[in-house]
Design a protein around this nucleic acid. Structure first.
Lengths: 218, 218
DNA sequence: GTGAGCCTTCAGCAAACCCTCAGGTGAATT
DNA sequence: AATTCACCTGAGGGTTTGCTGAAGGCTCAC
């Protein structure tokens, strides 16, 4: 369930999550959130801390499910001390990659350890979401946060062609005002760090986008 | 079983303990505590001394299981003289680390010596929970209480990435109002005391958190 | 009371990171 | 072949993040 009073945020999140295969309910304020949660008992709630009526933490207390909080970046740290074990938070403005990663992490912790392995693999390129480790062959590679998010997005969508606009929408914060040039820069960084050996995995499709995939033999 | 009349404390403790793999029952007052204990006979009771109806010690007398008392910091010492052999106590406000450590200690004493060894080890770094001793290689290291709790939390979660907020929630008292800067300070202290030789075990993941682990070959 | 150890805050510094820009390269088009 | 366009990448500046030394206040033992 997604709870936020700004319709744009609500739509952004629910559309993104539905596309990824989640079933999504929404609520615009604390009152509605509590009602919907009682009726439908969702597995997880994405919850804005600043709501028009109730405080986000108050809502969290009333509904029994795990919560991913959305907070302003300048919120004092001690506010976040209201987190219960198992909950997590993301600061606004966020990127969709960020939110989905946190959601999956919370669900994995909640549903016992029986979740899917948090390890993505394409050819000899491996990425461990929990440990935040990346390997190319038998050498470990250090990535900055943005590099990591970008590679993660590539690997989740391995084999699919991704436009620069698409990448911008998912990997960068939703309020990022710059142009797609930054994507080119980061693809360049990634190539140097993880794609400097054969077989090349990141391919450019001129005036279309990029795709991460193992090249066919031949 | 967790017994406290404040729902926030009850939730904090029960969620934290469930997350660590315990089965948890709760009660909000002495009456309920005695009833639940008779029905379910828990292995241990975490019991607030100040309850609305019965005195905590009275409850302890009626139920036959070991008890970890929660007391106010300014409780007079003679109150605590009411402890039976095998019981223990923690003062409010506590840290989750503190409570879990005491719980495990009580259970270990209760269930005979057949418990798991109270010695954590990562590479050549060793920590003895009972003796409160820490060794790096063959030299012993003296740690302050907070340093010890922090290192203990790191070692219990070795290999797992821990955010500063997470560390704050577990190692510091639940009412701590400060910001995450104090975590940086203590990590710095720990590094100087126990991580000043190769291989480095405490690693910074910029804008993500810290992780204690043996670095991979490569 | 006094001192030692401990906890926390803070500020200055250093490193890492993010983004922009511009020149260069190569592919597609005319 | 010349032109155009998309893309690549090195360089650089501004910002963020983290580390650490220093200092103040607190508690506790003596």
């Amino acid at each position: 369930m997604v709870v936020d009073d700004e319709p744009s945020i609500r739509d952004l999140l629910s559309a993104s999550l539905r596309f990824s295969g989640f079933e999504v309910l929404t609520a615009a304020d604390g009152q509605e959130a509590v009602e919907v949660a009682e009726r439908a008992s969702p597995d997880l709630v994405v919850l804005d801390v600043m709501l028009p009526d109730l405080d986000g933490f108050e809502v969290a207390k009333r509904i029994g499910t795990p919560v991913l909080f959305l907070t302003a970046r300048d919120a004092t740290e001690d506010k976040i001390a209201g987190l219960r074990v198992g909950d997590d938070y993301v600061t606004k403005p966020f990127s969709l990659e960020e939110v989905q990663a946190r959601i999956r992490a919370v669900l994995r912790r909640t549903r016992g350890e029986g979740g899917p392995p948090s390890r993505l693999k394409v050819a000899d390129l491996e990425l461990d979401e929990d440990a935040r480790e990346v390997w190319r062959g038998d050498r470990q590679v250090r990535l900055s946060p943005t590099e990591f998010k970008l590679l993660h997005y590539f690997m989740v969508n391995a084999g699919r062609v991704l436009s620069k606009a698409q990448i911008l929408d998912h990997v960068w914060n939703y309020d990022f005002g710059g142009d797609a040039g930054v994507v080119e820069s980061y693809v360049s960084y990634l190539r140097r760090k993880v794609d400097d050996v054969e077989p090349r995995l990141i391919h450019t499709l001129r005036s279309v986008g990029y795709v991460l995939r193992e090249p066919p033999p031949g």
